[in-house]
Design a protein around this nucleic acid. Structure first.
Length: 586
DNA sequence: TCGTGTCGCGCC
DNA sequence: AAAGGGCGCGACACGA
């Protein structure tokens, strides 16, 4: 992957009454050839032609096109469905969101412009009744949309926007970093579309078997499965409450209190601390009930088709730059209990890789703390922290590092902080500074230039009021609490956000390597990404090619570290497993 | 009966 | 071993 700074051919795609308008552009977004109009139906063939007439074997990639479009989620799926992949793109909507907020581009015309269509969420996110029905009052002022024009008016001219974006990058405090971030984000958008197209291999019959083992056979609608019902009876007996419905927190809390238990919540973690015969069956009930409602037969029916689970990934859906998912899938929360349903196709393997202790390593590299970076060279960073003598045990090292990144102040984690700060002053100083900035309402920024949002109007009013003459102690206390809370957010933002950048670079680099490995084979016949979970990814690969895939995953991780940090002593080790079933990884 | 808010819990 | 960050979702609670 590269930052797209120089030498590339850009081709903007825009909706047009007759189909699509193709506009060749140069680095600055100025016309670099004649614009042409194509019928939509002719677009895949033309995109394919432009991709393949590029000289793939050349080391100089200057003539490979970079497709410039408003939104990857609207342009790319139809191309994939037509059997056409693209190598690179510029996703203007995602790029705009980054440039609009980044401290690195704050002084540019793009960032200073009034909010416009590019600041709106992607069209799919806008309210649309799920079942297609409309309320009676809706539509009174609706005009009949012209055929094919639904999206045309959604976003302004992509060529003008692209020009503004190139200008903003060039004028930024660090064009290489922000350029890399935009390239990585756009590559992520391509991966997300390709992963949804390919789908995660999912064996419904194995899922059903897992559910049956844990819950009992699939019950009639409205009934509890047998094993869940049995556990429920044990809960009711233990509390002498034959009608109890533990799914109701209110009811459960009252019943527990009636049984003499001092409790103010019904969370498993709180219930675990009680000593009462109900604890064991109740925790068991909660676990099984959760499985049934979140990933039971209903989930299976709704989300798995033709042996594939195809989640909706939302690139940049989290303010820190992590991905989110939407729809009933819950793709980023797949419980370990059901991962046994994810099984490679015949002749294929799953290559599952995750970055070990990613966030503490990111902090070490980001801060340039030589002592922590030294620990960050080790395969087990926490053990290395113990070896330095900062803390006594590996568990302490882990809890202390988590506390440093999340902002723990109390408990064991809080008590360990002074020792950690003494051993690693620069690293801890970095997160402390980020926290103080947040408490003052200021913005913090990741390694590549993604900036945190500013706190909302309520927060600012609360802070201002705390300093007013009529403020009470309660006002001041509440304001302090809110300020610290925002500080914990900005503290975590720099680490989580930079880790997300590392993961994006890792995945984008790997995507390119897998494409090389696949040669002329179509996406799903060659090794291809099928899942991504913050610091973990899964490649579905022909069994004969897994050695090469493992090597590519490793070299991509090294490249990601180099892209973000240049030369750093910190290493980013992976644990990689080649398996048939996802449940067998780790 | 509906939409919205809260809780609890899955993942990192 | 702690209760600190980020999410999405289902179920329940509640008010219109």
């Amino acid at each position: 992957m590269d930052a797209g700074q120089t030498g590339h051919v850009f081709i903007a795609l825009a909706s047009h009454p007759d189909g699509a308008l193709l506009s060749p552009l140069d680095d600055a977004g100025e016309p670099a050839g004649e614009a042409t109009v194509l019928a939509r139906a002719a677009l895949p063939a033309e995109v394919s032609r432009r991709e393949f007439t590029s000289d793939r074997s050349s080391k100089d990639a200057a003539d490979r096109p970079r497709w410039v479009w408003d939104d990857t989620t609207t342009w790319y799926p139809p191309l994939l469905a037509a059997g056409v992949r693209v190598e690179r793109c510029v996703d203007l909507r995602l790029s705009h969101a980054i440039l609009r907020n980044s401290e690195l581009t704050a002084q540019t015309p793009l960032a200073r412009a009034v909010r416009n269509g590019w600041d709106e969420p992607t069209p799919e996110d806008q309210a649309q009744p799920r079942d297609g029905s409309r309320g009676v009052d809706e539509g009174l002022f609706d005009l009949e949309p012209e055929p094919g024009s639904e999206r045309t008016s959604a976003l302004p001219d992509p060529v003008a926007e692209f020009r503004l974006q190139r200008e903003a990058v060039a004028a930024s405090d660090d064009p290489a970093r922000i350029g890399l971030l935009l390239a990585a984000e756009s590559a992520g958008a391509l991966v997300a579309a390709e992963m949804q197209f390919a789908g995660l291999p999912w064996r419904a019959e194995l899922h059903d078997r897992l559910l049956t083992e844990l819950l009992g056979p699939r019950p009639k609608p409205g009934e509890r499965p047998a094993k869940l019902a049995a556990v429920l009876e044990r809960v009711r007996d233990a509390l002498d409450a034959p009608e109890l419905n533990p799914d109701s927190p209110v009811e459960l809390m009252k019943t527990l209190q009636r049984a003499g238990l001092m409790i103010t919540s019904t969370r498993s973690w709180d219930i675990k601390k009680l000593r009462h015969p109900v604890v064991e069956p109740l925790l068991e009930y909660k676990k099984l009930a959760r499985l049934l409602s979140a990933n039971g037969w209903h989930w299976l029916d709704a989300n798995v088709r033709d042996g594939r689970f195809r989640p909706d990934y939302v690139v940049g859906g989290v303010v820190t730059g992590r991905w989110a998912s939407k729809g009933g899938g819950g793709a980023l929360q797949l419980p370990k209990q059901i991962r046994g349903a994810v099984v490679a196709d015949p002749g294929f393997k799953l290559v599952v890789a995750d970055a070990s202790q990613l966030e503490p390593r990111i902090l070490a590299a980001l801060s340039g703390d030589a002592a922590m970076a030294e620990a960050g060279r080790a395969k087990d960073m926490y053990a290395a922290i113990v070896a330095r003598g900062a803390v006594k045990t590996r568990d302490h090292a882990k809890v202390a590092m988590l506390g440093a990144m999340y902002g723990a102040t109390t408990g064991e984690s809080g008590r360990l902080m002074p020792a950690l700060a003494k051993a690693y002053p620069r690293a801890i100083g970095l997160v402390e500074n980020a926290a103080r900035a947040g408490e003052r309402g200021e913005v913090v920024t990741t390694r590549l230039g993604r900036s945190s949002p500013r706190p909302g109007a309520n927060w600012r009013e609360l802070q201002a009021a705390a300093y007013g003459e009529s403020s009470t102690d309660a006002d001041a206390s509440r304001a302090r609490g809110q300020a610290r809370s925002w500080g914990r957010f900005t503290r975590n933002f720099v680490v989580q956000g930079t880790a997300a950048e590392w993961a994006l670079c890792w995945m984008a680099t790997l995507r390119g390597a897998l494409r090389e490995l696949g040669g002329s084979a179509w996406l799903t016949d060659a090794p291809h990404l099928v899942f991504f979970l913050h610091d973990e990814l899964v490649v579905h690969s022909p069994a004969a090619m897994t050695d090469a895939v493992v090597a590519a995953i490793g070299s991509s991780a090294i490249e990601a570290g180099r892209l973000l940090f240049g030369s750093t002593p910190v290493e980013f080790p992976l644990s990689i497993a080649v398996v048939d079933s996802y449940a067998d990884a780790k």
